[in-house]
Write a protein that binds this DNA or RNA. Structure first.
Ligand SMILES: NC(=O)c1ccc[n+]([C@@H]2O[C@H](COP(=O)([O-])OP(=O)(O)OC[C@H]3O[C@@H](n4cnc5c(N)ncnc54)[C@H](O)[C@@H]3O)[C@@H](O)[C@H]2O)c1
Ligand SMILES: NC(=O)c1ccc[n+]([C@@H]2O[C@H](COP(=O)([O-])OP(=O)(O)OC[C@H]3O[C@@H](n4cnc5c(N)ncnc54)[C@H](O)[C@@H]3O)[C@@H](O)[C@H]2O)c1
Lengths: 211, 211
DNA sequence: ATTTAATCGTGAATTTTTTAACAATTAAAT
DNA sequence: ATTTAATTGTTAAAAAATTCACGATTAAAT
């Protein structure tokens, strides 16, 4: 797999999201300037990024939205990724209902909860199982990513479980640090941190920037 | 306000989160190496970052957890930030119940929903109002940040409303691009993007890295 | 057919960020 | 009291990312 600049890849996902909006509203071409306005980046940055993947634009008209989407996805979106969720509470059930997953790229395979009242049901077509089913299911379905949405007291325990099932990536919503062996990738999503860092950016009066 | 390297500030919030865990478990000192293991960064990076704010460590023992927390907060956490939420559905109510806000730093002031069945109630002590109350409340309580947790068809409309109320920062959970005037800061949180970019990182076999 | 204006694509310059190297400091061991 | 080992803090070097400057290309206008 060719190596692209780290930040370019991150931004590629922003472009893809913007392109989805544009395609949905029927726009056939978009210029780097328009994309810049949508993403709060600069037009130069965008052209440079795109050029890393190939030539996709036509001078004077801009980029074909569908073609650009295809180009970015070709390099940046891998095969379908399989995901499981732990903790079907307030947040967990909201996530199971999230309409943003495109089935051909992200497959939510199953959910798990320790509460017997929650298991053997389904939300949005996704079945909820007890924890003892986790290992078998994760391995059988080749699940790559686990989501932690349990109370923070339980999150390390679930992290350990995920690791023992052979999962390589974790998205952790609980507001606490989890410890995992080297080689496992963790992405923490903490609303408190989002607020504080956004507020910092606002006060630092930097050029606006999506993230 | 002194200017710190952008990335150092971002990481400072990660350090604060790790420090909270350490303090909670009663640890008085922590070395850059231990922090590195917790955050999947390197010890050098951490020392470099901290040195930007001041000298906070003692050779041979490391950093006093409480003191380091205080130092980072002094520079990186501003006054209390006031937040409102739009859309008290599955996700919105989970957010209102989020226990990770420290009242002295983040104040969730109010929530708004267009559904009459949801207004005039409260979740976790936070009152839910109809949309027409938004402007007055936001201005009276000096709200700086608005959260968008409405269905994606409504999110641009809410973004416009937030802007018209004078809000400077938006956290957008809806999986679509919103357009705002220059000078307004937007942070998008899109689970689909998180999965795809985490999966990219995993496959790119980069050194593990929290984010 | 020629000119004009918009836009892309890119090599070079600049800025920012990370990494490396190592001196200074301190606690503990002897 | 001296030595040893661990750890910080800083300066310099290297790497990565961004911005700049501008030529090339194309569609539209004349
Ligand atoms: N990042 C964010 O923005 C954000 C927002 C809201 C909540 N959160 C966090 O997400 C987590 C869940 O929040 P919530 O409001 O949904 O909580 P909740 O109490 O509603 O749900 C927790 C669920 O986890 C289950 N559970 C408990 N222990 C378990 C275990 N050991 N194994 C499996 N399942 C277990 C419970 O049965 C329950 O269904 C919390 O850590 C919360 O702090 C994060
Ligand atoms: N980022 C994520 O991880 C994530 C996860 C889940 C959901 N989401 C997104 O969050 C949003 C909300 O999801 P949900 O599952 O809570 O949806 P939901 O349908 O349960 O809730 C939406 C709420 O918004 C209210 N609403 C609708 N139109 C409104 C308007 N114009 N003004 C004010 N309120 C309005 C509805 O009354 C409802 O209470 C969606 O856009 C969804 O895609 C994001």
């Amino acid at each position: 797999m060719k190596k692209f600049p780290q930040r370019t890849v991150t931004r590629a996902f922003m472009y893809l999201r913007a392109l989805d909006s544009l395609i949905e509203e029927g726009k056939a071409y978009v210029s780097s300037g328009e994309l810049a306005a949508m993403t709060a980046l600069t037009d130069v940055q965008i052209r440079k990024d795109i050029s890393v993947f190939g030539k996709a634009g036509k001078p004077r008209v801009g980029y074909d939205t569908r073609r650009l989407k295809q180009l970015l996805e070709e390099y940046v979106v891998q095969n379908v990724v399989h995901v499981v969720l732990f903790g079907v509470g307030n947040l967990g059930s909201a996530i199971l209902r999230y309409p943003g997953f495109q089935e051909d790229k992200i497959k939510m395979v199953a959910a798990f909860d320790s509460d017997p009242n929650k298991v053997d049901k389904a939300i949005n077509g996704i079945s909820i199982y007890s924890l003892d089913k986790a290992k078998l299911l994760i391995q059988k379905k080749h699940v790559e990513i686990g989501v932690i949405a349990v109370p923070k007291q339980a999150s390390q325990q679930i992290a350990d479980l995920l690791v023992s099932c052979g999962i390589q990536g974790i998205v952790n919503f609980s507001p606490t640090t989890i410890t995992v062996p080297k080689g496992i990738f963790v992405k923490n999503i903490d609303l408190a941190v989002e607020f504080l860092s956004l507020f910092w950016d606002m006060n630092a009066k930097k050029a606006p920037r999506y993230a």
